[in-house]
């Protein structure tokens, strides 16, 4: 059986800069994997490359065995990569309900209704805010909208780019508490996270990224006790 998502030798960058220097990574079916790394390690670039917002210069990106590297980004979304980008990228003047509709337009109507029900069950507060403009929501609610929008595309793999940014720890935990339910629905998760403890608490397995390369990997439990992880962060 092939992994939900597998990358091998992925090289990518912006303009003249090469940021990802040959990244290998695997996310199993139903697995929650975290990519840890300091600011500037290349986590966002990695997620943007998987989502197709940046075209890889070399290497392979497979979604359930199917090569998706180099496809247009909107096709990659449709192929089953849900992306919760850094900065959330909501539509400030559209309502919460519009966000769900726009995310769901890639699915058949019956599936859309199912997804909508399950998303609103996961984030009940959004059900009360359906008519409200996204720009007027609190940070935590905006993060929920971004996740809900991505889930409405019926993804096989959900990419979460530092969902903890700017949120109170209590709200971050409530976001992470949705992972078991997603896993049950067959959604695999790739989380990029700066905070070691937060990231390791939420994941099955972890990679540590530094200067565009994966320098360590292992189960969350292994890495939690590995002092090399902290050393990478401190640049030692």
């Amino acid at each position: 059986m092939s992994a939900a998502l597998s990358l091998s030798g992925v090289v990518a960058g912006i303009g003249p800069l090469t940021i990802l220097q040959g990244v290998d990574l695997e996310v199993g079916e139903g697995e929650v994997v975290v990519v840890l790394g300091a600011n500037g390690a290349g986590k966002t670039t990695l997620l943007r490359t998987i989502a197709g917002l940046l075209a890889p210069r070399a290497g392979s990106i497979r979604l359930r065995g199917e090569e998706i590297a180099g496809r247009p980004a909107h096709r990659i979304t449709r192929a089953g990569i849900g992306h919760v980008p850094s900065g959330r990228e909501l539509f400030p003047r559209l309502s919460v309900g519009d966000h769900l509709e726009l995310g769901g337009q890639v699915c058949a109507p019956a599936r859309r209704a199912e997804l909508r029900a399950s998303v609103l069950e996961m984030f009940p507060v959004l059900a009360e805010r359906l008519g409200q403009r996204a720009g007027t929501l609190s940070g935590g609610e905006q993060q929920m909208v971004a996740i809900a929008r991505a889930l409405m595309t019926d993804p096989r793999v959900l990419l979460l780019d530092e969902p903890s940014t700017g949120l109170a720890p209590r709200i971050v935990l409530s976001v992470f508490q949705t992972f078991p339910a997603l896993r049950k629905q067959g959604v695999s998760i790739l989380l990029a996270e700066q905070s070691l403890t937060l990231g390791l608490s939420a994941a099955d397995r972890a990679y540590v990224m530094d200067h565009g390369r994966m320098v360590l990997s292992g189960t969350a439990a292994e890495l939690a006790g590995d002092k090399r992880v902290a050393d990478t962060y401190l640049g030692r």
Partner: peptide, 8 residues
């Protein structure tokens, strides 16, 4: 970017 995340 948000629109692309919706498959648009």
């Amino acid at each position: 970017t948000g629109a692309i995340c919706c498959g648009i």
